[in-house]
Design a binder for these strands. Sequence first.
DNA 1: AATGAATGAGTATTCATTCAT
DNA 2: TATGAATGAATACTCATTCAT
Lengths: 184, 184, 184, 184
Amino acid sequence: MTTTPPARRFDPGRRDRIIDVTLDVVAAHGVAGTSHRKIAEAADVPLGSMTYHFAGMDELLTLAFTRLADRIADRFDARLAAAGDAEQAREAVVTLITDDLLGSPRDMVLTYELYTLAARDPALREVTRAWMARSRKALQRHFDATTARYLDALIEGLALHSALDSAPMSTNDIRAAISRIISV
Amino acid sequence: MTTTPPARRFDPGRRDRIIDVTLDVVAAHGVAGTSHRKIAEAADVPLGSMTYHFAGMDELLTLAFTRLADRIADRFDARLAAAGDAEQAREAVVTLITDDLLGSPRDMVLTYELYTLAARDPALREVTRAWMARSRKALQRHFDATTARYLDALIEGLALHSALDSAPMSTNDIRAAISRIISV
Amino acid sequence: MTTTPPARRFDPGRRDRIIDVTLDVVAAHGVAGTSHRKIAEAADVPLGSMTYHFAGMDELLTLAFTRLADRIADRFDARLAAAGDAEQAREAVVTLITDDLLGSPRDMVLTYELYTLAARDPALREVTRAWMARSRKALQRHFDATTARYLDALIEGLALHSALDSAPMSTNDIRAAISRIISV
Amino acid sequence: MTTTPPARRFDPGRRDRIIDVTLDVVAAHGVAGTSHRKIAEAADVPLGSMTYHFAGMDELLTLAFTRLADRIADRFDARLAAAGDAEQAREAVVTLITDDLLGSPRDMVLTYELYTLAARDPALREVTRAWMARSRKALQRHFDATTARYLDALIEGLALHSALDSAPMSTNDIRAAISRIISV
DNA sequence: AATGAATGAGTATTCATTCAT
DNA sequence: TATGAATGAATACTCATTCAT
């Protein structure tokens, strides 16, 4: 029998770590299966620490999904910022779907969890709204506002159908679909 | 002393009713907030009846979401079957998005709940897969297979972005986006 | 190591027992210190049984205090019913205070717990109201309505001051105070 | 990044303020619902300050209720000191009940919370004992010791029954009841 | 001298499932 | 065949108190 190590710990960044770990737990068990207990265990933090740092599960989920949205939007932005012309932009979008979105089942799952919450909770709908606004703004580096909006929707649909259908669409199909939307 | 009213023993269609009511409960509380108790109460059925009729929550959800997908796919199919030519078909798709999908927040919410489950559970991914196959087949009454697939994805994206963004897209925008995808 | 006895028990009257035991726990720890856990343990009942039988602590306390009030009112009633004339009635009241009220510290404590709750919660104020109505009705067997009301208040005050003051009033003092109120 | 406003370090009278605020919290939530956290928040004081200034909740409650009793007794005293003769004293007592006691539901609630604690805790019973001694002493300005004691009990009973019964007694009834007790 | 962060024990309540009837 | 009562595990959350700073 070993004695429990002295529980009191100097642990800066704990709050931050909890937020990150929350996404791991949601990715693994879904929002439906997420609990303070599971998060606390995964973050190696006492259970009481959870409600000390966060008002409740809602606040925690909002913080966590905000972080998810920011991270994905950053990458989205970076890809498009790196594109030099319209054709490179189109390729950036293709890569974005095939590599970034479809390439990370974890983010995919988390994204749908977020959408499900957002469909019900205005606080989380604000997260999706801000995210979509950033996406469109990034697309407007290369496309007009209308096209950006259509394209943003198409990207969403292509990713979703590739994820939940039997087989993902081919890169060529994705490129072709996108070409149809962005060609005047 | 009043006695409890005799629980109804003769209750044909109980199983069916439970399945329907399950969607109501999920719509109201989310999968995360759905429980045997809530469903039993909403269906006016004894709690013990739940595990008597269904192996568990998973089975029940699968049955319920299958029913949801069938119902929405039926409507989708009917709209496109009624279209006489390509232009009518395009309008059918527009109406489908603006009226059927965006017009029913309940179905919207349920759909995303389903997607979230499907992203994790193969049994439910089979439900979304079959649904998408039906959609594409319906679209193929009027469009070639490739276009049907692109269009199906676009429909999804347009509905989702209209639902989770700040404001829904205008009917004209939806029509314009669709036109881009279906025009050769 | 002995194994836990098979938990499932045939236990009719369990609901009743819980209500009774609740008063014991309140008497011992105060409403402030009363919890489902303590009651469950005292009643030898699993914790889950508490919220199975009662909607919440409020319902349980209301049931328990209703029972307390009924029991004390019964005794009150019996004492006065047994009195043959006005003088016997006066003596009955004296005995009631010295023996019944002051003689049972447990009931005294419980009574004040009830008053404290009733001062805040209308549901429990209804309990005190009904109790007081019964007391006055019992007194009206021997005294006019006005006297009954004054006397009822005096009884309360004498009991309370005897309980919370340094020393209880003497029986003679109690008799003398009562005599002043009931003498025309 | 906004920084938390600097907690006020210079805060004379903090201890005093905490004691006063404690009564507010007890009035609002009952002793059962009172916690260091709620008091600290209401007093705008860091939580750690609570156990720094006071040994525990018991000490804090004793201090707070002592203050309550003193305040009510002061008013009681003042009313009777202002009365010039026996008749004015009687009227003072009537006013005391109708205006001071029944006129302040907050004090009423707090008084019963105190009684409930006093019924169990000797430290708080000393508070009620001293309070009652002061009341009787004030009454003895105008009435003999025996009458003062009876009258004190009657006042208590009249206030309590007016508060917890369906309707408060009329001023005339209160005056009549008092007259019976003080008339030789 | 004072406090913000921390924690383990405790709170009410909900739950899926079991099983005697 | 069907169910109401039951229960232990789990849930989110609150709490008084401790203590490094």
